[in-house]
Write a protein that binds this DNA or RNA. Structure first.
Lengths: 246, 246
DNA sequence: AGCCATTATTTGTCGGACTAATATTTTGAG
DNA sequence: CTCAAAATATTAGTCCGACAAATAATGGCT
């Protein structure tokens, strides 16, 4: 273990140790899957106790920067960031920001529309048969009236994710998965009527067809219609809720 | 403190406690700025020791879900997610994914272009004078030849952020700040020649003008040119580096 | 009444001990 | 000699108990 860490002296040891290790990982002094010293050794090196080191490690673990295994040949390892977990964290943050009002639902809706239009255009040129199949599968599933609302919503999300995946851009996938996920609570609120489902399936058919035929423009139109429709249904749902409560 | 937590029994106590608290925060049982029980009390409630509770709390702190203060009237408080910090986390994750190859630079560049075109279009219709001023200020700063490379890069980032902010969409701001940030290492690598600076200032002028005159199309073109230019300079930089090392 | 010292409360840190998991080594049987 | 099972060593996970540091509230002093 030849990696050097800056020594930490002043305040809030755990936080600074975490920061020091994080920096070491970020700028490549610690590589992915590399094992870092044992907690005991780190404690000696940073001149703190093991619990303090552990708190630092937990901070990193919470960001999925390290993973740990017990036993000999165990230890704490630099973890390559799993995109799904990172997307989950992002989705959580976005959900909270919506809940607290930092992001308005309107901003979220327009952002989603704009981003999905971009993905749709890329998908129209980069799609593969696998992606089309995935979209078709979800669309077929959504036609099943026996689906519960939750199942329908889940399939809805998978459909959009499949379209995003078809764009072939991993960064957009990453961002969009989180955005779509963060919007799920809203979707859950408004999908409950058969008519709504049929309408949404109709939008999805138009989207799928646009990607199939490599015609991004109709896809953009379909997405715009879908967002407008969703917005209206959401407003209605809010009014109904207002009626019930007062 | 009337909030109930599910009791945790089976495995990995700290992780489950963190998850339990996180869920309580996410679905609103714990509201922002609310103080949660003392560590002692949580330890009793979850039937674990205080260090274990602390590890759970550190996990949440790492995700900026809670903040802590010492002293009476201190404690652990639910923290409203600061967009900048969340964006920083996202940027870190993105940087790592680029470093590890989960995201190709090409994917990153196209994603950035597409997203910035979206932001530019929104900015053209939603911009305020403050946003225009911010963009003008940075542009003026970039004309100063005395700037160090780092200062020029920083101003470059601020210019793009100002344009993104002008879109008026907080979610896009949030995402783009992270994307732009994650791209900084690349920028740092290629900005070193006076000619490059002049070219980039030229692109920025076109972008600013398009937002000023509410003409999104020319802005999109300028952004595309900027990305293409940047890509070429980056390829050259890579070749130079290859020459030096081999 | 206003200011300062005291105090109480809560997180931060510590050291050590024990538990649980697990890879390695040793041992034993075939 | 081979292979499997048991012992062993190593390492993270948990726990306890205590003290340090920060800080708001309290109470006493001027």
């Amino acid at each position: 273990m030849a990696v050097e860490f800056e020594s930490v002296v002043t305040v809030s040891a755990a936080k600074q140790i975490a920061e020091s290790l994080r920096a070491a990982i970020m700028d490549g002094r610690l590589k992915v899957d590399e094992r870092l010293p044992t907690e005991e050794e780190l404690a000696q090196r940073f001149k703190v106790s093991r619990p303090t080191v552990r708190e630092a490690l937990k901070r990193l673990a919470a960001q999925h920067l390290i993973r740990s295994r017990r036993g000999p040949a165990g230890g704490n390892f630099v973890s390559s960031p799993a995109p799904e977990e990172a997307a989950q964290s992002l989705a959580n943050a976005a959900t909270l920001m919506v809940a607290v009002g930092d992001i308005s639902l309107d901003a979220m809706a327009t952002a989603r529309l704009e981003l999905e239009v971009v993905c749709c255009r890329l998908a129209a040129s980069n799609r593969t048969d696998e992606h089309l199949d995935a979209m078709r599968r979800e669309l077929q599933a959504q036609r099943n009236a026996a689906l519960t609302d939750e199942e329908f919503c889940a399939s809805d999300i998978r459909f959009h994710r499949a379209m995003v995946d078809a764009s072939g851009n991993t960064l957009l996938q990453f961002l969009m998965h989180a955005v779509v996920e963060a919007l799920q609570p809203v979707s859950n609120m408004i999908i409950f009527r058969v008519r709504d489902r049929q309408a949404i399936v109709g939008f999805h058919e138009r989207i799928l067809h646009s990607v199939e035929s490599r015609d991004a423009e109709t896809g953009a139109a379909a997405l715009a219609d879908l967002v407008a429709y969703t917005r209206d249904r959401y407003r209605e749902a809010l009014e109904r809720r207002a009626d019930r409560t007062g």
